[in-house]
Each structure stands twice: as structure tokens, then as C-alpha cells.
């Protein structure tokens, strides 16, 4: 840097500003990558996030309506009182099942081993069905035990499908195939380090910008603040292609039960992305304003 540029307040030479601009570009990418990886990891591994989505708003109500409709169809087919099975399902039981299901799949994905599936809360179903007078009247006594078994198994599948929206055979196969290719726990651990690595890279680039500016903080602040604001802008803009992909619409079309959950997930992630974006833009702009003020003070 020339002596002229070393004077307080003067901009460094073009030779110093070009590498600083390149590092600012890299810093933008690093901050953006850190934010996106944080959000991505949360979506893939956060049990709390998925639990909140599973129990959000009217999701459990919809789930119970779906079960009731399934039980009524079953009752029409086999000739028993639908209330016999409907009375066994309560909101509390379904909420517990939803929590267990989220724990089951998040742990299976994280460990690479399919854990034991949660039990469907239909205790006492066989006894209740055997005591159902309409069923006893329509089925021969000898066939009653096998019919009851068949109904219980079908009812269990109805309850299970209301809680697990992704085909569990595909989930099991996917985890097993992925587990054969890579060490899933190690991959999950590595994935958790991506935001930290991106932040470390961001710190490195910020340091390099400061070095290029010969530790002149007011000028370095302009580049660093600009990069932060740019990363915020990019985080906000990332929501556009995600919205354009119309994931929510596709999920709603494939399964009505997923509509409430996917809407809740989308709301949480959108709010978090926008929160990060706004914070980054504010911090970046403040840093740039400070740099500008410093510059004006020296110039004056």
C-alpha cells in the first residue's frame, strides 16, 4: 500500500481493493452457506421441530378424523359398531404416538439402524371387538377370533398410517441402503460441523479483508458489512426458488394429512430464514454506516 493511502481515511490502492473484493465475495458465500446449512440441519435432524409440526394446530384433529373415517369403513366391511374402536383412540394417545414416531424416525436416520417401531395405542381392541354384539351376531362363533385379529391388524395399520406419512418400508430401505454406503452417525456428526466450518471460513475471509486493508478497520468494515448484508439478501432470496418449487402444494396433493404439518414446517423455516436475513442485513448496514462515519471523520 502506498504512503498516500496509508493516511487515515484514504481508500487503499486498487491493488489492495481487488483482493479485498474477492475475499468479500468469498465471505458472502461462507456466511450464506453457514445460514443455509444451519437451517438444513435443523430440517433434517431436529426432533423438536418435527414434533412441533406433528402436533401443530389442527394436525391431531385431522389425524383423529382420518382414523374415525377409517374405522367406520372397517365397521361397514366387517359389521361391528364403529364406536367400539373409536372409543379406544384419544387425543392424548395420538399425541404420544406422534412424539414416539418422530423419535423413531429421527433416531433411525441419525444412527443408521431402524429402531423398534412405536406401538400403536389400541390396547384392549381385541377384547372390545369380541364383546361387540353386532359383530358376534354377524360372524360365526368359530370364525370370531380370526375376524377379530384381522380387524385389529387393519385398525392398527389405519392408526399407524395416520401418524407416519412416509411409507415406512421405503424409509427402512432408504436408511439401510444409505447405511451400507456411508457411516450415517459419522455423516450426521460431520454434517453438524458444516455451519462451524463455514463460520470459520467466514472469519478467515474477514481477517484477510482486514489484512488487505492494512488493518484499516473503517475500510475493512465496508467490505465485511457489505458481505454480511449480501448474505442476508441471499438468505431472503433463497425462499423464492423454494416457494416456486411448490413443495407444500405437492405434499398437500399427495396426502391431505400432511397439509397442516408441512404448512407449519414451512412457516417455522420461513420465519427463521427471514429472521437471519434481517439480522444479517441490519448488522451489515450498521457496519457499513460505521465505516462511512469513520471515513468521514478522518476525511474531515
Amino acid at each position: 500500500m502506498s504512503k498516500k493511502n496509508m493516511k487515515a481515511g484514504r481508500l487503499p490502492s486498487l491493488g489492495a481493493r481487488i483482493p479485498a473484493a474477492v475475499f468479500a465475495l468469498l465471505l458472502t458465500g461462507a456466511i450464506w452457506a453457514a445460514v443455509l446449512s444451519l437451517l438444513g440441519i435443523q430440517l433434517l435432524t431436529s426432533r423438536g421441530l418435527h414434533e412441533r409440526a406433528a402436533l401443530a394446530g389442527d394436525a391431531v384433529e385431522l389425524q383423529m378424523t382420518r382414523i374415525e373415517n377409517g374405522f367406520r369403513e372397517l365397521a361397514d366391511e366387517f359389521g361391528f359398531e364403529p364406536e367400539t374402536l373409536i372409543s379406544l383412540v384419544s387425543r392424548e394417545k395420538m399425541e404420544n404416538l406422534d412424539r414416539e414416531v418422530v423419535r423413531w424416525w429421527t433416531e433411525s436416520v441419525a444412527t443408521g439402524r431402524i429402531g423398534e417401531k412405536p406401538t400403536v395405542p389400541l390396547e384392549g381392541a381385541e377384547e372390545a371387538l369380541k364383546a361387540d354384539s353386532r359383530l358376534s351376531a354377524s360372524v360365526e362363533p368359530l370364525l370370531l377370533p380370526t375376524t377379530v385379529e384381522k380387524i385389529t391388524a387393519r385398525a392398527g395399520r389405519i392408526v399407524w398410517k395416520s401418524a407416519v406419512h412416509v411409507r415406512d418400508d421405503l424409509l427402512t430401505a432408504g436408511v439401510q441402503i444409505a447405511g451400507r454406503q456411508i457411516n450415517l452417525p459419522q455423516a450426521a456428526e460431520l454434517l453438524g460441523k458444516v455451519p462451524l466450518a463455514a463460520l470459520a471460513a467466514a472469519l478467515l475471509f474477514a481477517g484477510l479483508i482486514a489484512l488487505c486493508m492494512s488493518r484499516r478497520l473503517q475500510t475493512a468494515g465496508h467490505f465485511i458489512g457489505g458481505a454480511m448484508a449480501a448474505a442476508g439478501l441471499l438468505t431472503a432470496l433463497t425462499l423464492l426458488p423454494v416457494k416456486m418449487l411448490n413443495l407444500r402444494g405437492m405434499l398437500a396433493e399427495a396426502s391431505g394429512a400432511l397439509t397442516a404439518q408441512s404448512a407449519h414446517l414451512e412457516r417455522i423455516l420461513t420465519l427463521e430464514s427471514l429472521g437471519c436475513a434481517v439480522l444479517l442485513i441490519i448488522a451489515g448496514v450498521l457496519l457499513m454506516l460505521l465505516a462511512k462515519k469513520e471515513y468521514a471523520r478522518h476525511e474531515g
Binding site: 465475495l25 458472502t28 465496508h222 457489505g226 448484508a229 449480501a230 448474505a231 439478501l233 457499513m288 476525511e299
Partner: peptide
């Protein structure tokens, strides 16, 4: 100062542009 003041707000947009173009 005036010249730099004009450009200062463009920095984030300029830095974001290559990424926006790539995406």
C-alpha cells in the same frame, strides 16, 4: 466522500449478484 457515499449501498447488491446469477 460523496462518490463513495453513492456507491456504499451498492456493495451488498454487487456482492450478491454473482450468487443470484448462479442460482
Amino acid at each position: 466522500m460523496k462518490k463513495q457515499g453513492k456507491w456504499i449501498w451498492l456493495t451488498p447488491v454487487l456482492l450478491a449478484l454473482p450468487f443470484i446469477a448462479a442460482v
